[in-house]
């Protein structure tokens, strides 16, 4: 328990392997959002804003890319969450932007009752997918692209709901780790209250990511960085001082969730198969056939 607390207070970017020119990263992400919106002829962007770190950082990037009038935000709490609501207000004030509220409690509770859903994981997934239904509907209303808020840590370990929060048109911060997102947020000047609070998927009251995953982000991100990006072997990771138990668990999480990163598997029986060897870039969508 103490370990988790310490990890949140630490500044992982003091370590050399994550030292980066954050202004450059910001510029890449801002330009990426502009490009994607223009390329596919959307007018606006919609973001499901939870008041947490990831969606706040993505909101700030989108506002920088498109201006506040073209960024439509939807906050979808499950019942009252006073602290998050306060954080949403902070964002509204700071950016001079209005956030739409939609409480999903009524519709979720109906589903929980009628389908007898009690398991917290099932409930959490239902909430994530209800939010997905709403944000995609809003994207149709606003002629907008849904901007996803997943980061590299959660994509790699599968800490997201399949076709829930993992569903989006683009994911601007999908290639940076959670600790890097925090650093980016700090650089971009997001409200301190949001920077400091323990990350939580809010699947149930009092839940935090680090308690549920059981590994502080600072440790998790380092293992992922060395293993995935730098291609260290398991032995090399152990030599770095990570424990066997933690390293194995991280690797297992990464392997178990690969299905979430891909299109559903299709048995190949034709010459060119969607997702396999029917290779066309998304940009082809702009070309007159």
């Amino acid at each position: 328990m103490n370990d988790v607390k310490t990890a949140i207070e630490l500044q992982p970017f003091d370590t050399p392997f994550f030292r980066q020119d954050i202004s450059f990263l910001e510029k890449v992400f801002v330009q990426f959002i502009q490009t994607e919106i223009e390329k596919y002829q959307f007018t606006n962007a919609v973001i499901a804003l939870s008041g947490g770190l990831d969606s706040t950082v993505v909101t700030y990037l989108a506002v920088r890319a498109l201006g506040k009038d073209r960024v439509k935000l939807l906050y979808m709490p499950y019942g009252k969450n006073v602290s998050n609501q306060d954080h949403i207000r902070l964002i509204e004030t700071d950016l001079g932007i209005e956030v739409e509220f939609y409480d999903i409690a009524e519709i979720a509770d109906l589903l929980f009752l009628e389908r007898a859903i009690q398991n917290p994981l099932r409930r959490g997934n239902v909430l994530a997918r209800l939010r997905m239904v709403n944000i995609f509907d809003m994207s149709a209303r606003e002629k907008a692209l849904v901007i996803g808020t997943s980061n590299k840590t959660e994509l790699l370990i599968g800490y997201s709901t399949w076709y829930g929060d993992g569903a989006a048109g683009i994911m601007p911060i999908g290639d940076i780790y959670k600790t890097q997102v925090r650093s980016l947020g700090k650089y971009m000047g997001i409200p301190k209250e949001i920077l400091k609070k323990p990350p939580s998927a809010e699947l149930w009251p009092g839940q935090t990511d680090e308690l549920e995953i059981g590994i502080p982000y600072e440790v998790l991100d380092r293992i992922l960085y060395y293993w995935v990006d730098q291609r260290f072997s398991k032995e090399a990771l152990l030599e770095k001082g990570f424990t066997e138990e933690v390293v194995s668990r991280v690797m297992k999480m990464c392997y178990r969730c690969l299905y979430k990163q891909k299109l559903p598997v299709i048995p190949k029986v034709s010459a060119r198969t969607v997702g396999l060897d029917y290779r066309l870039m998304k940009e082809t969508g702009n070309v007159e056939p």
């Binding site: 030292r19 020119d21 450059f24």
Partner: peptide, 10 residues
């Protein structure tokens, strides 16, 4: 193409 961002940018 860009891959890896360090203190100098790309």
């Amino acid at each position: 193409p860009l891959r890896n961002v360090d203190e100098t940018g790309p």
